[in-house]
Simulated assay, not measured.
Amino acid sequence: MRLLAAVDLGEGLESVVESARFLQEGLSIPAELLHVVPTPYFEALGRRFPHLRPGLEEALSQVEKEVQKTLADTGLRARVLRGFPAQVVAGEALKSRLVLLGQRGTGTLEALARGGLARYLLHRGEVPVLLLPRALKAVRRIAVGLDDSPASLSAFRVAEAWGRALGAEVFGLHLVSGQGGCCFPTYLDPETLGLADVLARAKAHLESLLKATGVVEVSKGDEELDLLRLAKAREADLLVLGSKAKSTWRHRLGRMVEVLSSQSSMPLLVVPEATVW
């Protein structure tokens, strides 16, 4: 199995390549770069205008050669394939332990442009996806967004495995919002407990589920971005979230993943619920 780094030739290429090198060494899993030349449009042109086919084929072949040379210069194993990028990457992801994707900027148009492939893979829920707004060069502290769901517990186990391999500290972060908020623990009664009791009981409950003590921090927070702010304040290098993937419909990834997958400014690892690392 491999780490699959799906790349284009945009400004995020170097960040993904650098991250792939780091994780290949740290996790002891070979990395492979994959670039997909989006050919459906040109194939349709060839069918509509047969006289263009030879020229289109020659141009595509030349593109493949140039891209292959560029990727080979990185020193990592690389392949160039043709097809519809999302489908090709998803198919190759099934033969991989992890998919790396570059992300740059959070503007509306840029988020929409890059969102197709990332969201397609996240909604399929078949393999962990690492979203990289910047290069991941070192990992000293790994933060895991926690609730009491199987998805977040699976994410914590994957983070523990990464922590052992990379020599990193792993800790969980759990947000408690006001009564009726998105993050109030469903297993606690807001009518009879003050905030201090809620925080203490939530921490004890989660550490009991994880079978570990001293690894969970519980804080008050009302917005999904509060988790990102807390992870940054704790100097985390990587944030890990569990994904419900196909287990729900309206928010099938979980609200936290829905928000942070497009707005996180730090590397974000999204782990499907059924993942075993």
Rank of each mutant, 00 (worst) to 15 (best):
A212Q: 15
V216E: 06
R104D: 06
G242C: 14
P272A: 02
F22Y: 15
G167N: 10
L109A: 15
L60K: 02
A113N: 13
D197C: 06
L23R: 07
L60C: 06
F184D: 01
D73P: 00
L195R: 12
W249G: 13
E64N: 01
A196V: 12
R255E: 15
G145I: 05
L109T: 13
D147F: 08
A6Q: 11
L112W: 13
E273P: 01
F49S: 11
V99K: 07
A200P: 03
V170Y: 11
L238F: 15
L4T: 12
D197F: 04
Q87R: 08
G242S: 13
L238K: 12
V240E: 12
K137S: 13
G26V: 10
S219H: 06
V16Y: 02
K137I: 07
Y120C: 05
V216P: 00
L52R: 02
G12C: 11
G75A: 11
A44L: 11
R234K: 15
G178H: 09
A113Q: 14
E58V: 02
L33S: 08
L199S: 06
A118Y: 09
E217P: 03
P272C: 04
G254S: 15
P133G: 05
R77W: 03
Q179S: 11
L269P: 01
D8T: 10
R53N: 05
L146A: 08
A165K: 02
L71G: 02
L241S: 15
F42M: 11
P190E: 05
E11I: 07
G115W: 12
A113L: 15
L130C: 06
V16D: 13
D189Q: 05
G125N: 03
L71A: 03
A233W: 04
G26C: 09
L195N: 06
T70D: 03
